Amino acid sequence: MIERRGLGRPMAHLVLIVGLFIVAFPIYYTFVASTQSLTTILRPPLPLTPGDQIGANYGEALFGGIGRIGGVAVTTLLFNTLVMALGIALGKIFISILSAFAVVFFRFPLRMVFFWLIFVTLMLPVEVRILPTYKVMVDLGMIDTYAGLILPLIASATATLLFRQFFMTIPAELVEAARIDGAGPLRFLKDILLPLSKTNIAALFVILFIYGWTQYLWPLLVTNDNQMNTIVIALRKMVSFADADTPWHMVMVTSILAILPPVLVVVLMQRWFVRGLVESEK
């Protein structure tokens, strides 16, 4: 029950408005800076209203290329990052569903040993295994390739654990009924488990897409060619130690464009995302 009397409701709205302002103002300020010329940015104070360079700045970034990153256009950076984020998100979900399906619905020797080996990898982040992983990528010739960006990051113990916990809630009667109807393992997975798991898949997709989009360390190591850089790596390369040597208007444009795809994914999938996190009836 929500209390609607007294000052509770106005105060709650005030707190939300203040919180929204604190979160949104830096983004707005970045957008304003992205519409100004470099001279205006370097000569404070920066205006609080958009400037007249929005078309020139965004056009140069998207189609003209940025000098400090080898003349690569932001469209190329966005495409590279999108391929990496989608590959990581879809690969993690695909492998995790199959792993959890095998652990829950099949009986084979050392089944739980394999599950706990997967679970233990939660304690081994990318930073711990970075050198052997990089050596493998070099030996396989996957430096400066999409496969090199994606493959080392597509295994997920967390997603496997979440799918396993959900699959364990499937009634045994449903499994037995599917077996009596002649459904094989793959048909049971396709026609029963996947439809029941769609909210979980949607919630995990949002989380894993953002995880892939914001990766920094691994793309920094595995890409040497500017044409294969992700947008996060490009942003770092664009910033120089000297303010005058940094194209701040292009940095701000790139920052705004880097924010848009994750925001779009969250907005379009927010209903599925919330249902996947809070839904209790399966």
Rank of each mutant, 00 (worst) to 15 (best):
I54A: 14
Y146P: 05
V74E: 00
P125R: 08
F163M: 06
F167D: 00
Y146G: 07
A157S: 06
A100E: 07
L62Q: 00
F105R: 02
M142E: 10
F167A: 00
L117S: 10
A155K: 05
M142D: 09
V72C: 10
F79L: 15
T121F: 07
I54R: 01
A89S: 14
Q165W: 05
S99M: 05
M123W: 02
V136M: 11
M112R: 07
L78V: 14
I118V: 15
I154W: 09
L77H: 06
V72G: 04
T145Y: 04
V74H: 00
F115H: 06
I130K: 02
L86K: 04
V72R: 02
W116V: 15
A157M: 02
I69M: 09
I97N: 10
L161A: 08
I69H: 05
P109Q: 06
L117K: 07
V126A: 14
L77A: 08
G70E: 03
L48T: 12
L46D: 06
A159Q: 03
P45E: 11
D144L: 11
V136L: 14
F105G: 07
F119M: 12
F167N: 00
L110E: 05
F105D: 03
V120P: 00
L48P: 03
F101D: 05
L124P: 05
I154V: 14
F166S: 00
S96T: 08
L98D: 06
D139M: 14
L122I: 13
A155S: 12
I88M: 14
R111Y: 08
V126N: 09
L42Y: 03
G67K: 03
I118M: 13
V103G: 08
A56V: 11
S96W: 01
F79D: 12
F167K: 00
L153M: 09
